[in-house]
């Protein structure tokens, strides 16, 4: 059984401390919901989990092995969804998705169709992405999750710009993923209502600049 763990993680943005001493534990099939006020570092934590942002302190580990020792393996097992949709307007919806499928080593011929259908945009497959609405682009980006290889999903506010129906589709997608032993970390404002999700309130790890300065003086 897989396990993704973070121990006493520190995060700096530029020179500003964001959070300190953060721990989390994400078992196979688990879901972690990140909450906290603006600026408490929800996006930063997800970027840190993805390996885009190196932690200023602490370690991330996968099944007990530090993630930093094998970044290639870590990239191969994660799917990240950020604020930007990464959709190329000049390519069709299917071509956009096929590219990501190829990068992940999946077969585009078999993977793309079902992934589009999972978010009910199969009928848009051959439409150039420049004709898609904001919500449809978002769904196209979400469809990457259905390509199937990633064990660890890192979703940064996936529910923004989605209608109720699509949110429930996303919820189903996440449930199926977890049933298959996958894990997911979500930052969210609007509640996705994931069952048996562990709530991680980042507000409690926030460091004030005053405290950081005081500790530095003491050091």
């Amino acid at each position: 059984m897989d396990q993704f763990k973070g121990a006493s993680l520190d995060c700096l943005r530029s020179t500003r401390p964001v959070f300190r001493g953060l721990d989390f534990d994400l078992p196979a099939g688990g879901a972690l919901v990140l909450t906290g006020p603006n600026g408490s570092g929800k996006s930063s934590l997800l970027r840190l989990m993805a390996g885009l942002l190196p932690p200023a302190g602490g370690t991330l580990s996968w099944n007990g092995e530090p993630v930093a020792e094998d970044p290639d393996a870590h990239r191969a097992r994660l799917a990240y969804l950020g604020h930007l949709d990464a959709v190329k307007p000049a390519l069709t919806a299917a071509e956009n998705l096929a590219f990501w499928a190829q990068l992940e080593g999946a077969d585009p011929a078999t993977a793309v169709g079902p992934a589009l259908d999972a978010l009910a945009i199969g009928h848009l497959a051959d439409l150039p992405a420049r004709f898609l609405s904001a919500g449809q682009k978002r769904r196209l980006n979400l469809a990457r999750l259905g390509l199937g290889k990633a064990v660890l999903w890192l979703l940064d506010e996936p529910a923004t710009a989605l209608d109720v129906e699509t949110i429930s589709r996303l919820r189903d997608l996440i449930h199926r993923h977890r049933d298959g032993g996958g894990m997911v970390a979500v930052s969210t404002h609007s509640d996705l209502e994931l069952k048996d999700a562990v709530n991680l309130d980042l507000g409690q790890y926030t460091v004030s600049a005053a405290r950081a300065a005081a500790e530095e003086t003491a050091a």
């Binding site: 993805a50 390996g51 885009l52 290639d72 990239r75 191969a76 994660l78 990240y80 950020g82 604020h83 930007l84 949709d85 990464a86 959709v87 190329k88 990501w100 990068l103 992940e104 080593g105 990457r144």
Partner: peptide
């Protein structure tokens, strides 16, 4: 970089 593709490529299996 602007549309977020670069970030996803950086996180995809190829280095």
């Amino acid at each position: 970089f602007e549309d977020g593709s670069l970030e996803l490529m950086a996180l995809s299996p190829p280095s």
